[in-house]
Design a protein around this nucleic acid. Structure first.
Lengths: 131, 131
DNA sequence: CTTATTTAGGCATTATAGTACCTAAATATA
DNA sequence: TATATTTAGGTACTATAATGCCTAAATAAG
């Protein structure tokens, strides 16, 4: 079991966009990306539907089509991609979503919050252009 | 979406054991714990089956029964409980379980590994007796 | 105009975690 | 001994995320 919460979708999204960013011209098809990342084409297609809706890529249909980056690579952080794929990052409060705790000063709170903040800042710092 | 991977089961396990540890005598029923933690009795019972198999508690059936801690509270870390409930913590390697990466020096590796180690050490440091 | 390529999107399937239920076994108490 | 309490463990149900499949729409190229 992973200590951190990271889905295949987030992995595919980040790596695909990085591959597009460093390609010339900056446009790649889902088929090509699926082969390069050794991933399911169907799943990757779904990921790109989400990325498209979120405005990170422009789509070009037909032969010689594919997906194009819509923003500069250093304007896109992994945090952006993560939240696009997995939903908003849940910081603060009880990591278990409890409103009331049987423990006055639940020992989890402080540590978990520190770790969450660390992850948040790290994801924010990682830019597409770093790849 | 939580940045960290933590299930309700791990929450219930850790908090229940802490409640038993600070009770006098050190024995509580599932029914009592479920009320105190405002949790599902059925779910908590399942959690205790796992804890029992793993050797953390002794069971006492019948009236005035319940579960008793089998080890000293400062010998039980949250890491122990976490791994009992969720399976072994997956450190090192690619956080996505990939064996080959399209990127020579995947930028994730270093950061993710640092964070995972941090979480691991933190869970290890948190003892039942700290509550 | 026809064909091949490629994205769009809905729907179906699968996997997994979480939750609930039911019966058996044990045991203290009356 | 009878009864109520409580754990044991199997099974089944539910929710959700992950994944896969199929058809439609768009478009470049011949």
């Amino acid at each position: 079991m992973n200590l951190i919460n990271l889905s295949e979708s987030a992995y595919l999204a980040m790596h695909s966009l990085a591959l597009i960013a460093r390609s010339q011209p900056k446009r790649l098809t889902v088929k090509h990306l699926a082969e390069e990342l050794d991933a399911s084409q169907a799943h990757l297609a779904k990921v790109f539907q989400t990325l498209h809706k979120a405005g990170y890529v422009e789509s070009v249909r037909g032969p010689a089509g594919g997906f194009v980056l819509k923003k500069p690579a250093d304007d896109i952080s992994f945090l952006d991609i993560y939240e696009t794929m997995e939903g908003p990052a849940n910081m603060g409060h009880c990591p278990f979503g409890k409103t009331k705790c049987a423990f006055h000063n639940c020992i989890f709170t402080k540590d978990i919050h520190r770790i969450s903040s660390d992850i948040y800042q790290t994801y924010k710092k990682i830019k597409l252009s770093d790849f």
